[in-house]
Nucleic acid binder design. Structure first.
Lengths: 339, 339
DNA sequence: GCGGGGGGATGAATCGTTTCAGCGGGTCCG
DNA sequence: CGGACCCGCTGAAACGATTCATCCCCCCGC
């Protein structure tokens, strides 16, 4: 593996000149430039990133620590990140914390050593890593938190108003005539899960009933257990609509209900959250609360760049997006008459 | 951002000693060690990864270039990679080529500069990047190709026998009585797409009919167009079963058929490929050809480590896994009688 | 009392770039 | 004809860690 020195020797110039050919070619005489280029291709020379970064003090890479890559929501956010990064020719590295706090901690540690341009992260939990993130910031690595409404005051944040999302869900289901609604989600230590519940609860009146099905996690498997629980209730005790913590849960609920002979939406309506592509593609297309996924990623990345650019008057900001209801088949019927 | 020098000064020792505290603590007197540790925490010192790597010549990071993170198949493979990497305390960085050859090329270039321990990649196309990958190898960065049966002879490869997968699919559908089968997939320049087709075609006899629906890509949206195409055929001209290039396509087909009033599996059976989690979670649970996803990632990573360890007698290997049929509802009925 | 040895620290060399002051030589202008 | 400039290139100093030869001291054994 050849270094710049060998290129210089082969081309009969100094290393400084080779570096100039690489970084400001117009400062080098054409004839010299060509000679150097020839040496480069001849040796198959590739710059050493570590040495460059060591010298430069900072890389052109932004790191994304995703909470759960198995959730397509994050993939879509990632798309936004990548398109924003591409504009500035930055590289995006993705890491997956898999909702594992220990793993996340190790990753942050690792990132601190790597000194990326910035870090985009959805922390596993509000409180746990705050300190660690603040350490990153205090070491000059800007951090932007996304999809999380926690009070991380040492950097910018992008979030979606989950309470509003819950309210939209509640209003929609009330309009459809539902008077007994279930909320399937968890763990409640996750801010979003709690906020969505609170929004729903806030729009329900005295006369309406709310059943909370607590889940240990938001995925298809836990969604199925929720579906089972609902299906096994006697028709009178059964909610006529289920608002799910996210679309994965909704898909699980949908499958379980269908399999047990309940019709969606006629017997039970289902409303998801996130509006991932699989929601529309479900056999009973899912109504869902849509988050502007790509825009979240795009905006978060832009903020990160602002911070890292050390814009003089940069003020940490918190951008809150509004969710929106997407109506599809899974909530398309009026609630069945109470028994 | 403090460096090792400042730690040394604060602790009243030389930089060499600080380095020893970090890397071989038992070579340092306990009293000194504590003094250094105190200085480290006091300054919030973190090692500079670039400097370390520059000195060491190689990092402890393996890079994965995934073909399409939006396909849960790759997420599952990734899980296998991560678990294998964790055993050796390696960090996994994920990059997404999004099936874009240009993007992939840029990523490989970038990786060459970064000098990771190794690269795990599913190339966008067989021929295109072969040269580039060989360059990586010739620069001492081992490459393992996964989920691709191309002839990349400069490194190890992990793949699945896609022809066999196609045969399994065909045999299963024949057993169910289907005599007119459609294959929905594309582009055929992708080896897997072609192999799965060929396997299917190989088990069909003279009397059976095969309709090929060519798609520009394998995702839910193209699956829907395939579904539309099938639904719009007159019942007589309509295949009674569809074998799909992957599960995303199958989900699209399923939704479109259902929405247009065709029953699955009674009117049309659907068979997917990959057996991603969403396949089982579809409202009509999808039969699918299962690939050992996590094992692919795990094995590929192990091979990478072997190569990078420069095991003296290391021979490049090619591991081929066998796919298996997973029967679910979407192929559970006998084929309808021919009209 | 002296040589040997070993534990513990030092300091310099090194990794591969980038950057910048400086140098030689040619051109232009007064 | 001499100074001012510009062009193109050189050489060396950083960047921050690791590593290894070296040195210092103290203790032990003869």
């Amino acid at each position: 593996m050849s270094s710049i020195k060998e290129v210089a020797r082969l081309a009969g110039v100094s290393v400084g000149t080779v570096s100039n050919v690489l970084n400001r070619p117009d400062m080098v005489a054409p004839e010299t430039r060509e000679r150097v280029q020839a040496a480069i291709t001849r040796l198959g020379y590739v710059r050493n990133g570590s040495a460059r970064q060591l010298r430069a003090g900072r890389s052109r890479t932004i790191a994304v620590v995703a909470l759960d890559l198995a959730n397509p929501f994050f993939i879509d956010v990632l798309r936004g990140v990548e398109s924003a990064a591409q504009r500035d020719r930055l590289t995006v590295m993705v890491f997956n914390s898999s909702k594992d706090a220990g793993r996340e901690e190790r990753l942050i540690e690792e990132l601190a050593e790597q000194r990326p341009l910035g870090v985009l992260i959805t922390p596993v939990n509000d409180r746990g890593q705050r300190e660690r993130l603040e350490q990153l910031v205090s070491r000059g690595i800007p951090v932007v938190v996304f999809d999380n409404s926690s009070r991380f005051s040492h950097g910018c944040a992008v979030a979606v108003d989950d309470v509003l999302g819950g309210r939209l869900a509640g209003r929609h289901l009330l309009e459809r005539g539902h008077r007994h609604i279930a909320y399937a989600g968890g763990p409640f230590s996750v801010r979003q899960v709690e906020d969505r519940h609170d929004g729903l609860a806030a729009v329900l009146g005295e006369r309406e009933r709310l059943t909370v099905i607590r889940l240990p996690d938001l995925n298809v498997a836990t969604g199925r257990t929720a579906g089972r629980e609902i299906a096994e209730l006697s028709p009178g005790a059964r909610p006529t609509a289920v608002f799910c913590g996210n679309d994965l849960v909704a898909l699980g609920v949908l499958q379980e209900l269908t399999q047990r002979g309940l019709r969606v939406p006629d017997d039970v309506a289902i409303l998801g959250y996130d509006d991932i592509d699989f929601a529309a593609a479900a056999a009973v297309p899912l109504s869902s609360i849509r988050q502007p996924r790509e825009q979240i990623g795009d905006t978060a990345t832009q903020m990160l760049l602002e911070e890292s650019g050390r814009v003089p008057g940069h003020q940490h900001r918190r951008v809150i997006f509004q969710p929106a209801l997407v109506e599809r088949t899974s909530t398309a019927a009026q609630a069945p008459a109470a028994i």
